[in-house]
């Protein structure tokens, strides 16, 4: 029995020695591999934030909608258009409605809001018909925001600096691909600028 136990112990000692050797030889590579696994191992359930609300003092959202989710509607009464409003600009978002770019501010936060949609029929094909003074209404889960159009321009798709990111004044920049009645790959963007004129926060 003693011999059997000693053989079993030897097997476990071998495991320990082997782990030690491997660790000594490949410590940096193992730790790199583990870091890589940790980096790509994301618990997505923790990222889905609910109950989106805003802190009215700091004008920061307390919790953000999950990326790719609908959190309200956008209406342009002059075009008789109402579409779902999403956080994000993924393909599936743009397939279904208007997306709010994650790189800018949220409505109510007092900064630049960048939103986009395809120039497809039923979405933003008629955006160039919007005139100064027309309203754009965002009815979101935490509040309602009314913007008034004050300008529009055509920019080349790489001229992102024309969509200025600031937090001095709440402005909505809504854009689509241009020309809206052309054929083929559109490389220009039609941007409509609107200022916040009315806001109401829900409880």
């Amino acid at each position: 029995m003693k011999a059997t136990i000693s053989d079993l112990i030897v097997a476990f000692i071998y495991v320990a020695v082997f782990v030690l050797i491997v660790y000594c030889l490949f410590a940096s590579k193992i730790s790199l591999a583990m870091r890589m696994i940790d980096t790509i191992s994301i618990d997505t359930s923790k990222k889905v934030l609910k109950d989106v609300t805003i802190d009215l003092e700091t004008r920061n959202l307390k919790a953000y909608p999950a990326f790719g989710t609908k959190y309200g509607t956008i209406s342009i009464p002059s075009l008789n258009l109402t579409k779902d409003f999403y956080f994000g600009d993924s393909l599936s978002v743009l397939r279904n409605g208007i997306g709010n770019s994650g790189g800018a501010y949220f409505p109510g936060e007092g900064g630049s809001i960048i939103a986009m949609g395809h120039n497809y029929k039923g979405i933003l094909k008629d955006l160039p018909k919007v005139k100064n003074g027309d309203q754009i209404i965002l009815d979101l889960i935490y509040g309602k925001f009314v913007y008034e159009v004050y300008d529009a321009e055509i920019v080349y798709y790489e001229d992102s600096d024309k969509l200025e990111l600031q937090r001095e004044e709440e402005r909505l920049m809504l854009y689509t691909c241009y020309p809206t009645d052309g054929f083929g790959h559109a490389v220009d963007r039609y941007v409509v600028y609107a200022r916040l004129v009315e806001e109401e926060f829900y409880d």
């Binding site: 393909l91 599936s92 743009l94 397939r95 120039n119 052309g182 083929g184 559109a186």
Partner: peptide, 14 residues
């Protein structure tokens, strides 16, 4: 989905 993304901004019908 990717095809649709390009088509919806191309002026062509889906």
């Amino acid at each position: 989905e990717s095809f649709e993304n390009y088509t919806m901004q191309s002026g062509l019908d889906l």
